[in-house]
Design a protein around this nucleic acid. Structure first.
Length: 293
DNA sequence: AGGTTCTACCTCAGAGATAC
DNA sequence: GTATCTCTGAGGTAGAACCT
């Protein structure tokens, strides 16, 4: 058996890692440069000419004897190697929906929705299976479009304001925090003002409400318990109990002696109703646990 | 029919204030 | 110190509109 010396793995020092990264980056740049400086092939020239004369990918595909998908790939390669404007006619600047979406930082569907509404300057290229082309004017109109410019009008004071992010949109009905506060107060009051129904409730609260409607026990001789006792008996959080109270799912009676922070008597809850709610909540938790396992 | 985006509304929870 | 309540922010969900 021949002796083979064990090869010790070369240690990757920070300096070595940096050199490797630099070499890789250099090779990548050279490859890109080769692609960009490569002259256009006849087929690519044909694709450019036909796209500029507003032919569809299907028509180009028929002319070249390839599928429309293959034409799309060729067009993508041209754009990648020779710039986004390579497929645009020199005297006319048109934007495809995807290009507009990328440029404006919104989804393709948003652009499509606005174009199909006819609110921006664009035209339909090709017959069935064609696509929208947006003019420069259309791009300017899109930039001013409220859903893209992220500009809104406050529902409380009517002042214009800028919406910042998707997550903020949920609360972006108002310009100032004070208006936001007012808006939340009114919407919450609107919700609370409505008598609870099966339709207005969701999840386990709906099941609890249904059970209470079916078996609403007499509350004249029932025991009345404080919120902490409700939490202990049901396993619900303080906030959940408060919500059931606000939505009037639970019957509430003021405590005869104890006063709360506002000076008003603290709320007490009917123990008979709490037992039903506890059962509904336990069933919900059981379903949740089964779903997870 | 099913997927995506956007919007309004519902539900929940943590932090802090206040009465007891 | 504890219990209760209010304020505020954030995630979930349903539905409309549109497209493939």
């Amino acid at each position: 058996m021949m002796y083979e010396p064990k090869r010790t793995p070369r240690r990757l020092t920070p300096e070595l890692a940096l050199r490797i990264a630099l070499v890789k980056e250099q090779r990548k740049r050279e490859r890109k440069h080769r692609q960009r400086t490569q002259p256009l092939t006849d087929r690519e020239r044909t694709v450019i000419a036909m796209v500029q004369s507003r032919c569809t990918y299907r028509e180009i595909g028929n002319a070249l004897g390839v599928t429309p998908s293959r034409v799309r790939l060729i067009a993508e390669r041209i754009r990648r190697n020779h710039g986004k404007g390579a497929l645009l006619a020199p005297d006319q600047q048109f934007w495809m929906l995807a290009e507009a979406a990328r440029d404006l930082g919104v989804s393709l569907d948003t652009i499509r929705r606005i174009c199909s509404r006819g609110d921006v300057s664009c035209f339909w290229r090709g017959a069935e299976g064609g696509q929208y082309l947006i003019t420069d004017d259309g791009m300017e109109q899109l930039r001013a479009e409220p859903s893209i410019a992220r500009k809104g009008t406050c529902v409380i004071c009517g002042a214009p304001f800028a919406k910042v992010s998707r997550s903020a949109w949920r609360r972006s009905t108002c310009a100032a925090p004070v208006c936001g506060k007012e808006w939340r107060r009114t919407t919450q009051q609107r919700t609370i003002a409505k008598a609870p129904t099966e339709e207005s409730l969701t999840g386990w609260t709906r099941a609890a409400f249904r059970a209470l409607q079916r078996h609403r026990p007499p509350i004249d001789r029932t025991e009345w318990v404080t919120r902490s006792e409700v939490i202990r008996r049901t396993g619900l959080s303080s906030m959940r109990v408060q919500w059931l109270r606000l939505r009037r799912v639970l019957t509430v009676r003021p405590h005869p002696t104890r006063k709360g922070r506002s000076g008003r008597p603290v709320a007490t809850f009917a123990a008979s109703e709490i037992a039903i709610v506890a059962k509904a909540y336990a069933a919900y938790q059981k379903r949740q646990t089964r779903g997870r396992s």
